[in-house]
Nucleic acid binder design. Sequence first.
DNA 1: AACTCGGGGCA
DNA 2: TGCCCAGAGTT
Length: 219
Amino acid sequence: MLNKTQIRYCLDVFEEMFPEAECELTHKNPFELLIAVVLSAQATDVLVNKVTPELFRKYKDPSDYLAVPLEELEQDIKKIGLYRSKAKNIQKLCRTMIDDFNSKVPETQNELEGLAGVGRKTANVVASVAFDEPAIAVDTHVERISKRLGICRYKDTVLEVEKTLMTKIPKSEWSDTHHRMIFFGRYHCKAKNPNCGECPLLFLCREGQKRKRKEEKIT
DNA sequence: AACTCGGGGCA
DNA sequence: TGCCCAGAGTT
């Protein structure tokens, strides 16, 4: 496990590699952000961004999503994939917002997580980006990077990863760190081919060192 | 913990 | 063609 000094070094490297990293799902209002993040499950943000401008022109508030038949909403988001469950969840989520939250997006993680199609990760993104709630959203990238480097344990659950990150990273840097880790994971430390050969963190990386030893054994 | 949903992007 | 993707719900 990395200590705080080593983790500090990782954060600095993330910043150096991806200084411009920002949340590409930062939309104007909480409702659009919520819908965009729900749509982004198992899909790339690039794909989501292709659909949302037109979608948000047609659907302004929760009642708009309920005003059309389910099949029409499915067609409108079909390009994204997993569209059947997402369309159904969006209508259900809008119904809950109207009935229980005065047509507004709830602001706490607990209330958000109670919405259809909203899990831990989505709830944390919306709470932190839209409402400035202190939270770290752990997606597959953040989880993979944390485990590979040794910021947390390999066998940690998502919740444990989240807890560990919150204790080991200064609160003021949660948001930036999150986005930089995602860029680091997407463009450099990929799931399939981590670019260990050109990685400035190789010397302290648990997974990288393991791969290196394996290679030296073969050659 | 494993399985399913799913079209688009990319090699 | 085949494989993967800023997850969530169900069993």
